[in-house]
Amino acid sequence: MLSYIIRRLLILPLILFGVTFLIFALFSLLSPMERLATYINNPSVLKNPQAAQRLIEKYHLDDPFPAGYIYWVQSLMRLDFGWSPTANQPVWEAIKQRFPATMELVFYSIIPVILVGIWLGVISSVHHNDLLDQTIRVTAIIGWSLPTFIFGLLVLFIFYGILGWLPPGRLSTWAQYIVYTGDSFKHYTHFITIDALLNGRLDIFWDAIKHLIGPIITLSYISWAYLLRITRSSMLDTLRKDYIRTARAKGVEEKKVIHQHAQKNALIPVVTVAGMMIIQMLGGVVITETVFTYPGLGYWAASSAQQLDYGSVIGFALLFAFMMVIGNLVVDISYALIDPRVKLE
């Protein structure tokens, strides 16, 4: 197992290298003048063509591909990720500012997904093929078919526009004032909900939760449909296993069969999927955060991709790739720990 972990960790730099190289190669398809568009959003600031040339030189936009890449990697070695014109701050600062917000969102999204998804999946499999199963399935498929941006805008419309319950953003202005200014509010984890509890500020805790519910629903409704499918087929599979039949034949109560015998084993693959889902959600935050103007990584990544801000895109992609490799590793290990039959090779 240890050698497996080491091997996987050795691959990590390779993947990170590959990711940066790939994105950089994509951006080198652009001419220097096109890349200037990242820094200039209105030609009126260029008094004359010389100004354009000065800017191209200043930002090393005319470096040919390998040289530009080497220049970028060199500054990366000094832990300098460069400047993000999209975020108007250094890329590293931008990541530090947005990462906790996104993690908080993903963390809270995964909870209802696991609860609702698994629970409905089990019901669906127990009532295999009868009306309830079909209804749940079709509802899941309809959910799956709803584009996130339509769904998100609807949530915003109903719960903020009409009911006024779930405001967009991350905090109300009064709470922002307390959280961002002065020394009275201590940042321990940068998860605002948790920090608020640690500071004993229940009002801020509620404010943060209110802002989170909308994005959580939007981010997770597709995932629970997916988890439901996995749970359902895994349960169906398990329910047909010999030991379940034996249990049933022995006259064990049906409820007990399902909840104690079957569910336990059926959930092993579900754990894996749920783990990977957290990582996938990191990619899925782009639209959710855009709709709710939730100030996280996804919102930023979307605007930097549009503005061809390659430093920021690479920064985001590196972080994502890192999380992905580590996350997969953790999932594999925990899988091996839960199910002794699995051997990591």
Binding site: G164, P168, T173, T290, V291
Partner: peptide
């Protein structure tokens, strides 16, 4: 006493903030 600039790119969101007095 205080002036707060909020940077919200989504029009719908800004509109709702105004409507609700936020």
């Amino acid at each position: 006493k205080e002036v707060v600039f909020q940077y919200i790119n989504e029009w719908t969101t800004r509109k709702l903030m105004l409507q609700r007095g936020d």
